[in-house]
Design a protein around this nucleic acid. Structure first.
Length: 438
RNA sequence: CGGGGUGUGGCCCAGUAGUCUAAGGCGCUGCGUUCGGGACGCAGAGAUCGAGGGUGCGAAUCCCUCCACCCCGACCA
């Protein structure tokens, strides 16, 4: 991609009304635009990141046997009346409106009311179970207070997976499988997630949240200092703690009666209170919705049995915002390679014709080699400005071509998070970036 | 929904004891000079001062109502 053709531009001034790190950086760097509180447009740069996140999630969902589908965003009132959620909590969180002939509709803020009757149409026998269906789609929630940039929105992309089982043991096993898949997803996204016991809220009593520790978070989690994930997150304590005897205790403050400094009920070590953002969660719904829609299947003995359900969500925009909260410095974003909008940022530092030619050659060679490259070919822009923009945008690898480097028949390859560049001969650049010349 | 804050060209803002050509910076357009960490000169374009109402000869500025955005709290898969 030629940067001179890129739709969005970086801006120098911090947006007036934003204080969250992710909002400031994503807006300044041109990844997103705010339409209103909690509702954002994803610009070309931001959409690339969102798609990368989507891709990671899709891969892991497919890997555990999930089948992707796409449900409607607009729902008829009737489905929601079946579960009683048109009034409560529908009245608070659901955008509801009337169409032609006063027929009432709502925008989906979750999809149990749609997926359950859908599954009922196709699944009649225990032989059809288990089944796991997921979608990646916009959710709408009339939040009392949208806030913190992408972290809490009124319209946001979410991956929601629903599973259906005959036996409880099968639900339990799949719940576990999803939990492991989620760990993998967040790891791939560059997010160190803590698995936390939580209340099921309006959904169920059985749930776990995947929490990323950050001061930007809105939850407080109580975590045992010997917690496996917590130890892994805090590298310092990891060195001190032996890897044996690790604990798995962590609870959302909403459901715990522990206080900071209290003793872990599992291992007796002190418990810490940490601020965190919930990037994913998993629930066992059991028969709550299969009952409402009478989703029953014949078991091997010919008897009708209600399907057992689980549901599992990840907010993509929230994940993106969380990544920025965790991966940035005073200069800008530092994207993990897995979600960076481009693999490398090629910067031609001067107007000099030799520099231009060398940069253009590199650009073409890299593209040919399958490397995603953003080429800053902008003219009449000072070196400092280009470098600052590159820092802000945060592509993890940067390739600088300049009068200096060209004299040595080389380019500088620099990691976004590091200061010292690696000097490479032009012919070796493509290889260094993981491409090959043919 | 309670509390606090803010609304002035695309962006950041000055101006709020009332005087009408609303200041500056960024960005944008043109010309020239620059070119390794946010360059410079000259010349330009661009504003229903959040909205509606009111009081004045006169309102960005005073009064009333409303709206939006941000933050804290409540709430929250």
């Amino acid at each position: 991609m030629l940067q001179s053709k890129l739709f969005s531009k970086t801006v120098r001034e911090v947006p007036a009304d934003e204080s969250s790190v992710n909002a400031k950086l994503l807006l300044r760097a041109g990844f997103v635009d705010k339409l209103m509180a909690g509702v954002y447009s994803f610009l070309p740069l931001g959409l690339r990141v969102l798609k990368k996140i989507e891709c990671v999630i899709r891969e892991e969902m497919d890997r555990i046997g999930g089948q992707e589908l796409l449900l409607p965003a607009m729902h008829p009132k009737e489905n929601w009346e079946k579960t009683g959620r048109w009034k409560d909590p529908g009245r608070e969180v659901m955008f509801q409106f009337a169409g032609r002939g006063d027929r009432e509709y709502g925008l989906g803020w979750t999809h149990e009311e749609i997926i359950t009757p859908l599954v009922k149409k196709f699944v009649h026998s225990y032989k059809d179970l288990p089944i796991a269906l997921y979608q990646i789609q916009a959710k709408f929630r009339d939040e009392p207070r949208a806030k913190s940039g992408l972290l809490r929105g009124r319209e946001f992309l979410m991956k929601d997976l629903y599973s259906f089982h005959l036996e409880e043991s099968d639900l339990d096993e799949f719940y576990n499988t999803v939990s492991l898949a989620y760990r993998k997803i967040f790891e791939r996204l560059g997010l160190k997630a803590l698995v936390v016991e939580a209340s099921g809220g309006t959904f169920s009593k059985y749930s776990h949240e995947f929490q990323v520790l950050t001061p930007a978070g809105e939850d407080i989690v109580m975590v045992c200092e010997n917690n496996r994930d917590f130890v892994a997150i805090n590298k310092e304590s990891a060195r001190k703690t032996s890897l044996k005897n690790l604990c798995d205790f962590a609870q959302n403050r909403e459901i715990t009666d522990l206080e900071a400094g209290g003793k872990c009920p599992k291992c007796g070590k002190p418990v810490h209170a940490e601020r965190a953002i919930e990037v994913g969660n998993i629930f066992k719904l059991k028969t709550k919705y299969s009952q409402a829609f009478n989703l029953a299947v014949k078991d091997a003995g010919g008897k009708d049995r209600l399907a057992l359900m689980g549901c599992y969500g990840i907010g993509l925009g929230r994940a993106m915002g969380s990544i920025v909260e965790v991966h940035h410095d005073e200069r800008g974003i530092i994207w993990p390679e897995t979600v960076a909008p481009f693999g490398v940022h090629l910067v031609a530092l001067q107007e000099d014709i030799q520099v231009r030619n060398a940069a253009k050659k590199l650009y073409e060679a890299l593209q040919k080699a399958g490397v995603e490259v953003l080429y800053d070919d902008c003219e009449n822009i000072s070196a400092g400005e280009k470098l600052n923009d590159a820092d802000l945008i945060g592509i993890p690898a940067r390739l600088i071509v300049s009068e200096k480097s060209i004299g040595a028949d080389s380019a500088e390859l620099k990691k976004r998070a590091e200061n010292t560049p690696q000097i490479l001969k032009l012919k070796d650049v493509v290889k260094a970036l993981g491409g090959s010349m043919d």
